[in-house]
Design a protein around this nucleic acid. Structure first.
Lengths: 341, 341
DNA sequence: TTCTAAAATGCAATCGATTGCGCATAAAAC
DNA sequence: GTTTTATGCGCAATCGATTGCATTTTAGAA
């Protein structure tokens, strides 16, 4: 049926040589004469030969596929990371297989297994919010499949990871708000089981401390950090006897929600309340006023993760030493926090 | 090295039977006794046996992978379609391989080839804006790999496709603007080589005609429909002797740009100029005022595409009849076009 | 011209799962 | 009690590329 379904055997037959020679010729093996190589390449071209990666994968025990696991691909952050991974991976003849967990733990476990069955050569992942048990990742790692975690990760896990300095990002953001004159800054955070949120909270606290501002438990609101959460959190802090004059949210949607509610209450941004979010999502510069936020260099995160993967594949036989790369975030100041001074 | 690297042969040995029997037992073959099946399943579990899909793929000539090709995954529309595909595919034990072309023709061709080499069982794609030559898709189709195009597609291509009724969406949007009192409606469009843009333009025109409004060539602006394009197109129509009182953009970012520029000119939306966009991207409901837009039911598009794929795989031996599914879009009315009446 | 080393290629096994065919054994039919 | 017919399972080939080892060919040395 299938046209052009030629194999190395067909090429071999055509040239009166064996498949071994063809294989070696195509792989530029030194023991094959230039003449033969040329002939093989020519014949391959003529037949429009397409190598069967599956056969090679079976024989070599490697598929040349990197599995990527993200909660969702529908966020600038994650899709940029994916792009970053692809960039590096493709250069090294790897393909990527992107899988979404929708932040569902069960799906995540199933996905890891599916990827292992598909014999991926490595897994680059950012786990689901509710993931507490990491044995599925460990299982992959023990099977010799490099696992690289990014953003959401876990120090206790003996695998490599690429994260940004969440502490620093939060510190910068908070300090910036202070410099703009804010003295009561609220912070929207999420589950403290995730280190990224713990670290952002820590950065926030230490910035306050460094500038001799008091820490008020009432100004910390924990939620899922989606749009609606941002809205309700904002209402909550506005209802305080002493409402805040600045808000730093650990997510982009969170600060978006804040902006909406503040506008609804006719509270001027940034004059009355200044805002800074986290994650430089596309919409943050589309709002009115545009939203300041902490840029995570997502593309770079992807690049780095892919590079670590390549290294680990390279050093597969050497003893494994997990590495942790921490990238510096950057504060992007826009209108929502810039008071005319 | 790899732990748990057991094969059906290991199970066979353990039970003193052959690999054939193990294979059949695991696949629930009717000719295998229940007792044997149970024993096999138990042994498999005990050894933590993981089937090697690659070996099966080689033998069966199918990988159980669907390749998805999209310009970018970083848009609600495309990522939702992907989700929709996954939903259906996973239920039928298919995995998906998502690839981004970044709207680059070369990359698209390379991607199709890569997917074919990876021996995907089908390709679901929305092609790049500049793609004029579709031979890479045809090649896949001729090789017996079902190709399903969605959104951006091409009637001349003898492959199945899932699209929305762009004409209808545009008609509804334009009519809505007219009903809100607009009489001079500008339309932002993109390359007319793409049928989606041609159809949207046609819908716009016919709605005008149906309501006896004149068609003015000056109100049509063709661009790439990104944010910046929306901005400049808006400036362009505002500079006309008779500026418009309504804008219908064939993209979401386009109308976003319009909103920005209008606000900068202190032109009231929707009172002075009403706006409707296309593609219900996340940010459209986050703006101030929120943006009306045409919802494309992206998830459903994905579902449908996957279902068509499954059908075509099923009927692989029957004669192929390409099918075209046209979904109805829905107009979502938000503040940007709703004048208090 | 004969021998040896090097260069070029072939042979056959391998990766792991699948499957058509065939051979037993057991159950059913006559 | 013999013939059919199921039933349960094994044998061996297959998918296509790769590779260690063996063999042939060629070139160079003696």
């Amino acid at each position: 049926m299938r046209k052009g379904k030629y194999t190395i055997h067909d090429i071999a037959e055509k040239l009166n040589i064996t498949a071994s020679t063809v294989s070696r010729a195509l792989n530029d093996h030194p023991r094959i004469s230039e003449a033969t190589k040329k002939a093989v390449r020519k014949a391959a071209e003529k037949l429009n030969y397409q190598p069967n990666h599956i056969a090679a994968a079976l024989r070599n025990g490697k598929s040349n596929i990197i599995g990527i696991i993200v909660p969702t691909v529908n966020r600038s952050f994650f899709s940029s990371v994916v792009r970053g991974i692809e960039e590096i991976a493709n250069d090294s003849r790897y393909n990527v297989m992107i899988c979404q967990t929708n932040d569902d733990y069960e799906k995540e476990v199933a996905t890891v297994n599916a990827l292992l069955n598909a014999r991926v050569d490595g897994i680059i992942a950012s786990f689901a919010k509710q993931t507490r048990d990491f044995s599925h990742f460990l299982k992959a790692h023990e099977k010799g499949v490099p696992v690289i975690l990014f953003d959401r990760s876990n120090d206790e896990l003996e695998v490599s990871q690429v994260v940004i300095d969440d502490y620093l990002g939060a510190y910068k953001a908070t300090e910036h708000l202070i410099q703009q004159g804010c003295t009561r800054i609220a912070h929207f955070t999420s589950i403290q089981k995730l280190s990224i949120y713990r670290e952002r909270l820590r950065g926030y606290k230490e910035a306050l401390q460094a500038h001799k501002l008091p820490f008020d438990e009432n100004l910390i609101v924990e939620s899922n950090l989606q749009l609606e959460d941002g809205r309700s959190s904002t209402r909550q802090v506005l209802a305080l006897p002493q409402p805040p004059d600045g808000i730093f949210s650990a997510s982009a949607l969170g600060i978006m929600g804040a902006l909406q509610v503040l506008k609804e209450h006719n509270i001027k941004v940034p004059q009355q309340v200044a805002l800074v979010g986290f994650s430089n999502e596309a919409f943050t510069e589309l709002t009115e006023p545009s939203l300041s936020s902490v840029e995570q260099h997502s593309m770079r995160i992807g690049n780095t993760a892919a590079e670590i993967f390549l290294e680990e594949i390279e050093n597969r036989n050497k003893t494994f030493i997990p590495q942790k790369v921490v990238l510096k975030p950057e504060l992007i100041i826009r209108q929502s926090s810039l008071r005319k001074s």
